[in-house]
Design a protein around this nucleic acid. Structure first.
Lengths: 235, 235
DNA sequence: TAGATTGTTAATCGATTAACAATC
DNA sequence: TAGATTGTTAATCGATTAACAATC
């Protein structure tokens, strides 16, 4: 059951590598469109914003797709990475929560071009059910299960307000979805076997703020109040 | 200049910890709003979706803000984390690129409530300069430098199409911005000392697709073509 | 053959986790 | 005092980087 052909050496790719493969894929697509036939690890690494040792290490998890002394065939490597990620196939996606962000996501061209097809837009608010966004009409949230089964949806996107997100996730899981991209600023609880990735705008800004604050401190090391001077411990 | 008071033990917090502090902050805010005065590391960790050992380790980098045998004072810990991140102060932010995503960002309430204030919306397209979005009017991109200086903007958000992003980043850096949140699907080159965080929707979906594909393989291990059977190496 | 560049090894670094002594 | 829970230590795990032998 879990046995594996030894020839298929490429299983169990580290998570950090998986997260970079789409970046390499994009860089290779750009090189391909620019008419470049071959590239070195150095060249590709620069385009992807990583160092070449890391790139080669990452690619070594997939297999041996380069040629020593020469480099990588752009088209060939691009296909191999696309296949490894799974974007050579079509992925039906459903988006739940068609507010400002949901509109932006539905209209985002980068999905379609990478094998993701938005098959349905759902919203709990009946006033939105008149709307057509990006050529797809907005349907009631209660249609979720039917749509998931009809289109074989494996990936769900949540762009509702935070209070609704857990309920949406529960229904997605119940309908058979096992991969969720969550834009709502809340921690989702899901059963084992379900993957959740979160995109959290205000967390990203807070991380930047932390570093920005430290930069400012370096510049004027005085302004910060001395440890504990302002706020006492509670009793 | 770089000397440091030994009492301020909390410098040099690991990057992984910094990325989780905003999650703890959000959980503490929820606890606070629910009227909870005290919580254990176990309780807070569950709310934040991490394990309690990691939470305590993370908090230990900030200082010793708990009470053995008792737990943490919710309000006190919340303030300490907020101060550490820097969200007790106000951060003026500028957003460049007011398409669908820019609209969604400008309207996002989570910014304002966490100390981020959108002081300007900029777009290169003159047709957008009539618009008022979320109470702020859209101004020409060429106003960037003046606005940055006027408001002391330290954080810039890029929500333009990919081809425009590098040029926007260059202008931001030239204007003095040293923290950038990039939503454009492209790798930005910036000088040392400038922080860039990227949010890339299609990369997130591709990471989910990779894992989804592997789940499907586990279920039906046969369907995948045998290694190299379909595609030959290029000459 | 000589030069170039991959794929891999080994060293280093950082992050996570479990366990427990300190202490409220 | 006894029970609870923190803060820290040490072990483990995973990711990054440099260096170089393999080889085109």
């Amino acid at each position: 059951m879990t046995e594996r052909t030894p020839s298929e050496a490429s299983r169990d790719i580290p998570e950090a590598t998986v997260a970079r493969l789409p970046v390499y894929l994009r860089a290779l697509t750009a090189l391909s469109e620019a008419g470049t036939a071959t590239c070195s690890s150095e060249h590709l690494a620069t385009a992807a914003g990583v160092n070449s040792a890391m790139l080669r290490k990452d690619l070594s998890h997939l297999g041996s797709y380069g040629t020593r002394g020469v480099g990588y065939d752009v088209e060939y490597l691009r296909y191999q990475i696309a296949r490894e990620i799974g974007v050579t196939q079509d992925w039906p996606v459903v988006i739940v929560g068609i507010g400002n962000l949901g509109h932006a996501l539905a209209n985002f061209s980068g999905f379609r071009s990478r094998g993701f097809r938005v098959v349905a837009l759902l919203d709990a608010d009946p006033r939105r059910h008149q709307e057509v966004v990006a050529g797809v009409d907005v349907r009631p949230f209660s249609d979720l299960e039917a749509i998931v089964h009809e289109h074989g949806v494996a990936i769900g996107v949540i762009s509702t307000p935070a209070p609704a997100a857990q309920d949406v996730a529960d229904h997605m899981v119940a309908a058979g979805i096992r991969s969720i991209l969550n834009f709502a600023p809340t921690v989702l609880a899901v059963p084992p076997g379900v993957d959740v990735r979160k995109v959290d705008l205000s967390i990203e800004l807070q991380i930047l703020a932390y570093h920005e604050q430290r930069k400012a401190l370096g510049a004027a090391a005085v302004e910060r109040p001395v440890d504990g001077a302002l706020e006492g411990r509670p009793a």
